[in-house]
Design a protein around this nucleic acid. Structure first.
Lengths: 341, 341
DNA sequence: CTGAAAGCGCTTACAG
DNA sequence: CTGAAAGCGCTTACAG
């Protein structure tokens, strides 16, 4: 049997109210009784029952992170940042992933109701209606990298357009004229914005824009590999590939090398995200850094802020500017020296 | 205001007890009233308060996963597997990481008490005493990849010794005589067992065993890079490196190529874990596959079983046999053809 | 099949 | 500074 507040009270010869006060940060108790009660609590290994406390206080000290997926380093970096911040503020983190369609996300939202003080949502399949009809209006929500019309919400978004523009512009300034893109998941907001950024850069640089250069993908290594097979059949062949994220770039490079195409000499490849491993693959990836773990951390901080203000604050939409990271895979010679082996 | 069971009862003209029964799977209610109550619950968007329910039932439907770290793909794969299994059985997953010393893990264990129905622990810093003194005896625990003396516990371990032996043996049979190891984190159980497996293979193969060939590391890419600098100064130079995990191997390969050393022609490199990206880096990694997400999934299943049996069952120690995966980085020619670019 | 009531273990006004 | 008591929102024997 776990011991309860009653046991502590009995042993200390005080009321449960006093024990409760002694054990809470800002309860008013005589210092001497507090010490005694703490001592006894330790002796009999008392831990307050979280459910009972939550029922009383209407707080759970827990926040949820809803992810579409858990593949690759991207989402683990998000969790890592979120976990750090949560721990710092003494909150717990409920993680739930694999919500790749509307139904799944609705179920997940539903399951979270009453379990958490707030939710961080990262899902391409969220919309205002889903949100509104599955969550109480009072529950703080932070949208990470997904946009919702209507009712304003706290949100943090990456400037995908700008990031894509930058990295493609970089390729253009280094002489590439024919640049293919391996797109992200269809209908995914990030994917669409990156595509637009790519097109914008091409347009500005007077380079070719054509459907033939825009290859399907889904943000995975496998998609990168598959796309390369198509790209190698294009005539004339592009000299560079913008992969919509680093995983795709890694898959693309893997396939290019299998086909004996040297990267970056015969084909430049750039990615997006700057996942940790991007600097360690060879050639190291030229990519767009978004500081993934900081994103997770910022989401938690925004959420906790919102919780503190009981969700009555003015909602904030933050857009994070990504930065270009030049390494070897673009072949511009500004990054680390590519190894010619 | 969120609606409560009272609101539903009032609107349906029944008692809260009946509502409770109607909304629970196996409560005995007339089918007609159940339908009506369900309908009303939906209308007024009633969700049971999880805390209240937990307080009553003494179940939280939540399990915790404690991780030492969240870097790299290893831990995210563990979470992915665990999350899948948890969702399947309608459990929630509380994730907490960065417990790299005894104090942290004690705090984490403490924080979990009363919040979860069971805990999966993955930490090199756990011992019988810490466990015993921080958790009620009745709380189900599954130890993932960490061993504890004394009181038996459910545990799942990788056969690190065997895995290391296999991959090093593979190098030996392909002609390597001088094989360096980049060790894992000091005092880490996995690291130690892999070292022993490495030595055992060398001994059996009559190859050199020496402290000079055993380089410090900590399971990160950075350690792999640093170790390579030392290895390149060894005389005579080894012809192969056994990196204690894939991240280390990736870091090592990255450094080797920066120094103009061709992998695998001039230096073979093998890893451990078979993280997803291992097949996509070039050269693709020869490594030891342990099915990481399956490990997470198995841990959850074991834990749920233990919860169902109220922790009164005979504890099981499972050892998972890893398998050798031959790819390009060992240069034996059995894997995919290495690209000679 | 249904209801009244006790109880889960806390917190927090309200008195003193 | 401390205690008695109400209340948080459920579930579940116990009666009927």
């Amino acid at each position: 049997m776990r011991s309860t507040i009653r046991d502590v009270a009995k042993k200390a010869g005080v009321s449960v109210a006093t024990v409760s006060r002694a054990l809470s940060k800002n309860g008013i108790v005589a210092e001497s009784t507090r010490e005694r009660i703490k001592q006894i609590a330790k002796e009999i290994r008392y831990t307050p029952n979280a459910s009972a406390r939550s029922l009383s206080t209407k707080r759970t000290d827990t926040i949820a992170v809803l992810l579409p997926d858990l593949f690759g380093e991207f989402f683990s970096e998000v969790i890592r940042g979120a976990d750090q911040a949560a721990q710092q503020y003494q909150y717990h983190l409920l993680v739930s992933s694999s919500h790749n369609n509307r139904e799944d996300i609705e179920l997940a939202l539903h399951a979270m109701r009453g379990r958490v003080d707030g939710i961080i949502i990262m899902s391409p399949h969220i919309d205002a209606h889903t949100l509104e009809s599955n969550l109480p209006k009072s529950l703080p929500v932070v949208l990470l990298n997904c946009s919702v019309d209507g009712e304003p919400c706290d949100s943090i978004n990456i400037d995908n357009f700008q990031g894509a523009y930058q990295v493609v512009h970089h390729l253009l300034t280094h002489g590439h004229k024919r640049i293919a893109i391996i797109k992200g998941t269809a209908k995914n907001l990030d994917a669409e914005q990156r595509l637009l950024g790519y097109r914008h850069a091409l347009k500005e640089g007077d380079a070719e824009i054509s459907a033939g250069l825009e290859i399907e993908g889904d943000f995975t290594e496998l998609a990168g590999q598959a796309a390369v097979k198509k790209i190698l059949h294009l005539k004339p062949m592009p000299t560079a590939i913008f992969a919509s994220n680093d995983s795709t770039a890694i898959g693309a490079i893997s396939a290019l090398r299998s086909f004996g195409v040297h990267v970056p000499r015969e084909m430049a490849v750039v990615g997006f995200d700057d996942i940790p491993v991007a600097q360690y693959v060879r050639p190291s990836l030229t990519t767009v850094r978004i500081g993934i773990s900081e994103l997770g951390r910022a989401a938690v901080q925004t959420l906790l802020d919102s919780i503190k203000q009981k969700n009555m604050h003015a909602k904030r939409q933050v857009v994070v500017a990504p930065t270009l990271v030049v390494r070897e895979s673009c072949g511009c010679g500004l990054g680390e020296k590519p190894v010619d082996d």
